[in-house]
Amino acid sequence: MHRRRRTPLALMAATLLAAPLLTACGGDARPGAAAVVGGERITVAQLDAQVGQARDAQVAVFGEEGYADALDQQCSAARQAELQQREEATAQGEKVVEGRETCAPDRATLAGMISERVVTAAADEAGITLTRKDLRERRAQLQEQTGGTAEQLEEAYLRTYGIPAARIDDHLGYQLRLDGLRQKYAPGVSPEQADVRVRQELVKTAERLGVDISPRYGSWDGKQLLMVAGSDPWLSSDPRRLDEEKADARAQAQGEGMPAL
């Protein structure tokens, strides 16, 4: 397993929320699915379960206000990453897509779930494999950077990414596969050049797989690989209002004779 560079956890804050995002194949996602990747459904139930797992873990550790504050920090990091990407796109003469939304927990989580699947497929196609030793070594590196104990690493992941302890290895695998893709397709170049090259490969992989997303969660821009906000008003970027707005939207839908999503 090839590795790129050690990246401090604090500097990786935007990775999950602003990960390389993927092109849609058009049309509505299949009923009951938040997205479909390579013919495999990411169901609404799976998405809600992952969002709920992260929320419950953060509330248990930080409390309700601490949970909201942690999401604010993640949102700020994602917006910084978005700003940098917009500046780079403008400098290269590319059209900048308006309406991107990375802060709503539902959309951000779905983006991460899609990205993990496409990165895994790209790594498999490139012959990149992971071992438990790779995961242990990466975990040990990050644990050292976050204070030296497993508990400190878990709290840092929960605060920075909103990822509970049970899913840390999944995210480490995601990062290691990206490192392997950088090493394969862009060895010996700057990190910025490597990321551009890898993103090109991810676009190809996504096109081969076919990625479809329910318009309930927004849409995808295939050239810039950005998530664009949908029109559903209850997908709030403010965690203090999210559950309340969902309940209001469901009540309104039922009152109008529409199925509750």
Results as ranks from 00 to 15, higher is better:
181 L>P: 11
132 R>Q: 13
143 Q>L: 11
188 G>L: 11
144 E>H: 13
191 P>C: 00
178 L>I: 13
171 H>C: 05
138 R>G: 00
170 D>H: 09
148 G>N: 00
181 L>Y: 05
138 R>Q: 15
131 T>V: 04
164 P>E: 09
146 T>E: 01
143 Q>G: 07
173 G>S: 12
150 A>S: 14
184 K>C: 10
182 R>I: 08
150 A>E: 13
187 P>N: 03
193 Q>Y: 03
158 L>Y: 07
148 G>T: 14
156 A>I: 00
193 Q>R: 11
164 P>M: 10
188 G>C: 09
155 E>Y: 02
167 R>F: 12
180 G>L: 01
186 A>P: 06
177 R>Q: 13
131 T>G: 12
190 S>T: 15
144 E>G: 00
148 G>P: 05
195 D>N: 13
187 P>H: 07
189 V>F: 01
194 A>I: 00
162 G>A: 11
163 I>F: 03
179 D>Y: 13
193 Q>C: 03
184 K>N: 06
153 L>H: 01
154 E>A: 15
178 L>E: 10
179 D>H: 12
137 E>L: 12
135 L>A: 07
152 Q>R: 14
173 G>Q: 07
142 L>K: 07
140 A>L: 09
181 L>I: 08
163 I>D: 03
179 D>G: 05
185 Y>I: 10
186 A>V: 01
186 A>F: 00
184 K>F: 01
153 L>G: 09
182 R>W: 14
156 A>R: 06
194 A>P: 00
157 Y>D: 06
193 Q>A: 11
155 E>D: 06
145 Q>C: 02
177 R>C: 07
